[in-house]
Each structure stands twice: as C-alpha cells, then as structure tokens.
C-alpha cells in the first residue's frame, strides 16, 4: 500500500514539476515595460512556408530556408535594455539551460559582450536552438524549436553572414 502511494506521489510530482522552457520565459517577460518580444507560432510557420522565395544570403549564394521553416514549431525572442529585467531573464535562461539537455555550441566574448549558443538534439537534428546575448546595454534571448536539420541551419546561418 505504502509503495503504491509513493509511486503515485512521484508520478504526480512528475506531472506537476513544470520545467522552465522558452515559452515560460516569453510569457514571463513579454508584457513587462522595457521589453521587446516576438513570438511566431507553428500555425504562422505553416503560412510562412507557403510564401514564395524564402531565401537568405546575397545574390552570390542564397540558401532556401523553406525546409527549415516547415520544421519550426515555435520562435521566441525577448530583448531588453533594463538592467533589472536583464538579470532576472539571465537567471531564468540559465535555469532553462541547466534543467534540459542543452549543449553549449559556442561562446563568444568580445568588447564586454557575451554571446552563447546552445542546441538540444543530435548530430543531424536540432530540436531546440537558443542564443543568449548579454552586454552592458542589453540582453537578447532567441529560441527556436522544431526538428531542424543541423546542416541546413548551418548553411542558412552561414549565408546570412554574407
């Protein structure tokens, strides 16, 4: 009897334990003053996928990102220059990254700015991509969820550099 109640309690705790995610970060900060926030839903991505010429890059080398857009399930961006909000946002993002299977892909520190890129996935598929940029003047959090082909994303990002 005791074992059964312990198992039931653990199952309930599992359902109740609401892990931090990009949506909760967006919901928490998007309505605050001094915050710019963008959310693109899966439905909107379906509409975007129907647009013609979804290409990134210059005339020399363009990359069609339609295959990426069709796999995206959510896009969240939260940006602020308010120091107090920045600190809170930074700690929430750290909690998100610590509680999930995110792997640090790259960290860059330059001119007082720290930018970190994280991915959750395997060698071929990225389930979630996070960028967190922090400097004295502001912080920007970007998160993309879906089943993104890693090679395609790298090509798109590379093309956007040019």
């Amino acid at each position: 009897m005791k074992k059964l109640f312990i198992i039931a309690a653990v199952m309930l705790l599992g359902t109740l334990a609401k892990a931090q995610d990009a949506k909760s970060i967006y919901n928490k900060f998007s309505d605050e003053q001094g915050v710019s926030a963008v959310y693109i839903s899966p439905s909107m991505f379906k509409l975007i996928g129907k647009l013609p010429e979804l290409e990134i890059g210059d005339d020399g080398e363009k990359v069609d990102i339609t295959p990426i857009v069709k796999t995206l399930k959510g896009f969240y961006m939260v940006s602020t220059s308010d120091n107090r909000i920045m600190d809170r946002m930074n700690s929430d993002v750290k909690r998100l990254l610590g509680s999930s299977d995110y792997e640090l892909m790259m960290e860059a520190k330059d001119d007082g700015e720290t930018v970190r890129f994280y991915t959750d996935g395997d060698d071929s598929i990225i389930r979630s991509f996070v960028m967190m940029s922090l400097n004295a003047s502001g912080a920007t959090f970007i998160s993309m969820d879906g089943l993104i082909n890693r090679e395609m994303l790298e090509k798109a990002v590379g093309a956007a550099m040019r």
């Binding site: 963008v38 693109i40 975007i48 990134i56 990102i65 857009v69 896009f75 961006m77 790259m106 960290e107 860059a108 330059d110 700015e113 930018v115 890129f117 960028m131 940029s133 920007t140 970007i142 798109a156 990002v157 590379g158 956007a160 550099m161």
Partner: peptide, 17 residues
C-alpha cells in the same frame, strides 16, 4: 523578423569566430 533574427545570429557567430 525571422530573416532579421538569422542575420543577428550570424553576426554574433561571426564575431565569435
């Protein structure tokens, strides 16, 4: 907005590289 975000991500990555 998505395109602008890709550009932002690229510029940050480029800085890192």
């Amino acid at each position: 907005m998505l395109e602008a975000s890709f550009s932002l991500i690229s510029s940050k990555m480029d800085k890192g590289v």
